[in-house]
Design a protein around this nucleic acid. Sequence first.
DNA 1: AATGAATGAGCATTCATTCAT
DNA 2: AATGAATGAATGCTCATTCAT
Lengths: 222, 222, 222, 222
Amino acid sequence: MASTPTLAARKKPGIAAPARRDAAATRDALTAAAVAEFSRNGFAGARVDEIARAAGVNKQLVYHYFDSKQGLYLVALESVYAEIREKEQGLSLGELAPVEAMTQLIGFSFDYLAEHPEFIALLTDENRNQGSHILASERLQKMHSPFIEMLEATLERGAKEGVFRNDFDAINVYISIAGISYFFFSNNHTLSAIFGKSLSLRGAQSQRRRHVIAFALNALRP
Amino acid sequence: MASTPTLAARKKPGIAAPARRDAAATRDALTAAAVAEFSRNGFAGARVDEIARAAGVNKQLVYHYFDSKQGLYLVALESVYAEIREKEQGLSLGELAPVEAMTQLIGFSFDYLAEHPEFIALLTDENRNQGSHILASERLQKMHSPFIEMLEATLERGAKEGVFRNDFDAINVYISIAGISYFFFSNNHTLSAIFGKSLSLRGAQSQRRRHVIAFALNALRP
Amino acid sequence: MASTPTLAARKKPGIAAPARRDAAATRDALTAAAVAEFSRNGFAGARVDEIARAAGVNKQLVYHYFDSKQGLYLVALESVYAEIREKEQGLSLGELAPVEAMTQLIGFSFDYLAEHPEFIALLTDENRNQGSHILASERLQKMHSPFIEMLEATLERGAKEGVFRNDFDAINVYISIAGISYFFFSNNHTLSAIFGKSLSLRGAQSQRRRHVIAFALNALRP
Amino acid sequence: MASTPTLAARKKPGIAAPARRDAAATRDALTAAAVAEFSRNGFAGARVDEIARAAGVNKQLVYHYFDSKQGLYLVALESVYAEIREKEQGLSLGELAPVEAMTQLIGFSFDYLAEHPEFIALLTDENRNQGSHILASERLQKMHSPFIEMLEATLERGAKEGVFRNDFDAINVYISIAGISYFFFSNNHTLSAIFGKSLSLRGAQSQRRRHVIAFALNALRP
DNA sequence: AATGAATGAGCATTCATTCAT
DNA sequence: AATGAATGAATGCTCATTCAT
C-alpha cells in the first residue's frame, strides 16, 4: 500500500507541499472512506458522493481510479480481506500445546471480529450479493487463509495426543468456531432486542468471549 | 400473517376469485412481495415499484396501506418473525429425555434457517439498520420466543440428570447453537468461495447438519 | 332541498339514525370544507382528500356531486360571492346624508374583508387563474353587486350637494376604496415583515380602519 | 441578480457563448425561470421540471444550487425584491416641491406594478404562505426600502408648508397609496369581470393612473 | 492529478380520478 | 346516496456517471 511519490510531486523541490497529493495517497484515502461508507450502509445504501467527501477529493476521482462504484467496492472488500489475512499471518502457535493453540485460535477469531465491525459488515453485504465480487476477483481468490491450515494442524496434533476428537473435519470446526463469535457480533442488535439486554456492553462482550472458548473447547473434547 | 377471508369474500362460495380483491388480500400480497424483495435486496436496494409489480397491484397501495417504504418493511419484518414464532410454538419436546430434546431444538434451529433464507436476509438487514425497526415495533417486542424458555428448561433438566454442564447460561447457549447454524447459511457464499467448494449443495448441507448437532451436544456435555 | 329518506334507511324502524345524510347536507358540507381548504392553500395546493375528510364524507362524492376538483372550486367561489352579495343587500343607506352613507360604504368594505379572509384568499387565487372561473360561470356573471350602484348613487348625491368631487367615476372610486382596505389584509404578512411590526393585531386593525375612512373621505372632498 | 461574468467567461472575447456555461450564469438562468414559473403558478402550482426546462438546464442543478424547490423560491423572491429596491434607490426627488415629489412617488408605485406583474404575483403567493420566506430570509429582512423614508420626508415637508395634512402617518399613507395601485393590478381579472369591461387595456390603465394620482393627492390635502 | 459543471435515469411519494358494489 | 379499492400520471428529489478543462 505504500506509495511512490510521483514525479510531479517531486519536480519542484523546496517548494511548499503541493496542493495535489500523489495518486497512491488518493487511492488509499478513497479506499478507506469506501470501507467505512460501504460497511455503514451496504453497497446499495452507500453514496459515492459521501465517499469522495470523506476522502477529501473530487468525486470524479472515484471513476478515474476505480471505474465505478462496483470497482471501488471490490477494492474495499479486498482491503479488509488483506488486513485480516495479514493479522492471521502474525499468529504464532509455535510450540504451544494443542489446547493452548486452539484457545489462541478461538480467541483470535473472537477478538478480530470484535475490533473490526467493518469486516463483518462488508462480508455480510457480500453474501447478500451472493459473493459475486469475491468470485470475480482473482486477488481475493488467491488470498488463502493460513487460519484454516493452522486449525487443521492443531486439530490433528490434538487428536493424536488424545485431547481432541478426531471425527470433526477442519472446515466444519472452522465454521462452528467462527459462527459462535460472528453471529454474536453480526446479530448483536436483534439479539439485544430479543433478550431485552444490551449485548454490546463491554461486560457482555468479555463474558461472551469466555463462553465461546469454553463452549468450543468442550465441543472438541473426545 | 395470513388474513382471515372477509365475509364478503366468502359469500359467493364456488365462484372463482373476484377481479376485485379485498383489502386484506391486497395487504397480504404486498407483504409477501415485500418479504421477497427486501430479503433479496435489503431495505436500501429494494424497489417499491418491484414490490407492487410482484404483488400485482398499483404502487400507490403501498402508501395507502403501509404509509411508506419503511412501514412496509416493518410489516415484512413482523411477518417473518410471526412465522418463526408460530413454528416454535409447534415444538413439542414433551416427554423427551434432555439429550433428545436438545437434539430437537438444535435440529429445528438448523432446519428453519435452511428453509427460510428470507428470515436470515431480513434479520441481517435489520442488524445493519441497528435494529431500529425491532425496537420501534411494539408488536415485535411482544413476540417473545418460546424457544429460549424451552432451551432453558431442557438445559436445567439435563444438568439435574448430569448429562449437561450446569455452568452455561441459556442465552449464551442459544447464541452458540443459533450461531453455528446461522453463520453457515448467512455466509454460505463467502465460505464456499474461501474453501473452494460449494456449501449450498444438498450433501454439504446435511453433512453440516450432522456436525452441528454433534458439535453442540458435545459442547454441552459435562 | 329536503331529502326523502331512502327505503333502505326506513326499512328498519326503531333502529338508530341512518348513517347517510341527505344530499343537500353533503353538498353543503363539501362546499364549506372546500372554501376552507381552497382559501388556505389555493387551487393547486388544496387536496381533494383533505376536503372530503373535513366534510366527513367519502372522496368519491366530490366527483359525484361536482364532477371534478375544478367543479368544486367553482361552487366554492360562487358560495363566497353569494355571501358577500347577500350582505351587501343588507346595507340600507336609506335617508343618510352622503358623507354618512359613504362612511357606511367604506366601513362595510373594510369590515367585510376583516371578517372574511377566505373571500380574499379565493379572490386572490381566482386572479392568478386569470379569472377563468368567474368568466366561465353564468351564475357568477349574474350576481351583480348592488354595492357599485349604491356607491354611484351616493357619489352623485354628494356631488349635487357639493360635498363630493364630481370628476371621479364610480368604478375608480370603488377600486380605490376597496384597494385601501383589501391591500391591507391581502398583504398583511409582507407589510408586517417590511415595517417590522404586526399589522394583524386588533389595535393595528382598528387604527387602520380609521385611517381608511379618513383617507377616502378626504379624497372625495371637492 | 445579474451575475458578474467570470474571468473564464471573458477570456475569449468575441467568441460565441460557450457550450458550457459558468455556474453563475446557470444560477441566474434558473432564478429567472423560477421567477416566471412561480409568478405564473404560485409555489404549489409551479413545476421544478418546467423551471429547469425553461432555464435550459438539467433539473438536478436546481437541487445542486438551491437545495430544494423552497430554496429556489426564496431566491426568486429575493431577486424580485432586490430589483424593486434598486429602482427605488433611483428615485431622485431632489429639489421638488412636496406635491411634485408626492406625484413622483405615487406614479412610481403605479408604474412599477404595471411593469412587473411577477412582483405582484410573488408577493401575493408569499402572503398566502403567511410571509414565511420573507421572515426566514436575513437578506430580505435587511433590504430596507428607501421608499417609506422618502414618503415620510415628503409628507413632513408638505405638512410644514401647509399643503398636506399632518395627521396621517407614513405607514398608513404608504399602504393606501400602494393599495390603490396594487389592487387594480392584482385583482384586474375579477374587477374586469364584475364591471364587464376590460381593465387591462392600455386606455383603462392610463385612465386609472390619472385617477390614482388625483385621488391620493386629494386625500393628502389638509 | 484533479476539479467543477452537468446529465439521464431512476426513486419514493402524491394526487386527482375512476371502478365496482 | 355512499363507500372502499384501485389506478396512471405526475412530482420533488437523488444518484451514479460523464464532460470539459
